[in-house]
Write a protein that binds this DNA or RNA. Structure first.
Length: 219
DNA sequence: GCGACAG
DNA sequence: ATCTTGTCGC
């Protein structure tokens, strides 16, 4: 079997998609709206079964600590996974799933990096921009950047000398890396991490479960 | 040229 | 991401 990714990522395609990422980044410059009080967050994740993808968005009430709404979308996985270009594979279906959430919410938590990305154009940046909603990237492993010293279970992620996010290692839950997506800055990330209790976001844990459940319920 | 590489 | 159950431990 030949590498399917070659079909999508030869030199010409890769260069064009990189241009697209840079275009978005320059396009949203200055569109950093101030993050208001966060009472409801929406976590979004995608699960796969061959070329079928199911995205699940879970609305989570931070104070009451409960799921308030679930939205799921099934679709064809048209792009293969390629590090640095995850948005091609997951952004379309993630955006559709979040649009299925009816009740209001304050921020979208995306399973993937925000600006902790080679071109500061991670999946969370695309999803937030497309929705016109503040977004936070939450990844389980580092893609780029340098980690600073561990301080109270947290460490800064630096890229070209600038702070782009935080690595977090809660005592109970799994390690993760958070960076701004759209509509919020690094200072807001620190605030958000506090609101979310420092642990791996329950909204994302639920989204992961719901996405996998979606694969099974339909086939 | 050699490794690294979100999900 | 996905293939996969129960089991050891706090």
């Amino acid at each position: 079997m030949p590498d399917q990714s070659a079909q999508f990522f030869d030199e010409h395609h890769r260069r064009f998609f990189e241009w697209l990422q840079k275009a978005l980044v320059s396009q949203i410059q200055g569109k950093r709206s101030k993050l208001n009080t966060v009472s409801t967050v929406v976590g979004v994740d995608v699960a796969y079964s061959n070329d079928i993808s199911v995205a699940a968005a879970v609305s989570w009430d931070v104070d009451e600590r409960r799921v308030v709404e679930v939205s799921r979308v099934r679709s064809m996985a048209l792009f293969p996974y390629s590090a640095g270009f995850l948005f091609l594979r997951e952004a379309p279906v993630m955006v559709a799933a979040v649009r299925g959430i009816v009740e209001r919410f304050d921020v979208v938590l995306v399973d993937g990096h925000g600006i902790a990305h080679p071109r500061e154009a991670g999946l969370a940046v695309f999803v937030g921009a497309a929705l016109g909603m503040p977004s936070l990237g939450v990844a389980k492993s580092l893609l780029v950047g340098d980690l600073g010293v561990v301080d109270r279970g947290m460490q800064e992620i630096t890229l070209d000398g600038s702070l782009v996010g935080y690595g977090v290692k809660p005592k109970d839950s799994r390690r993760y890396f958070a960076s701004p997506g759209f509509g919020l800055d690094v200072e807001d990330v620190a605030y958000l991490l506090g609101v979310l209790g420092g642990r791996y976001p329950e909204a994302l844990r639920q989204a992961h479960i719901e996405a996998r459940r979606g694969l099974k319920e339909v086939g």
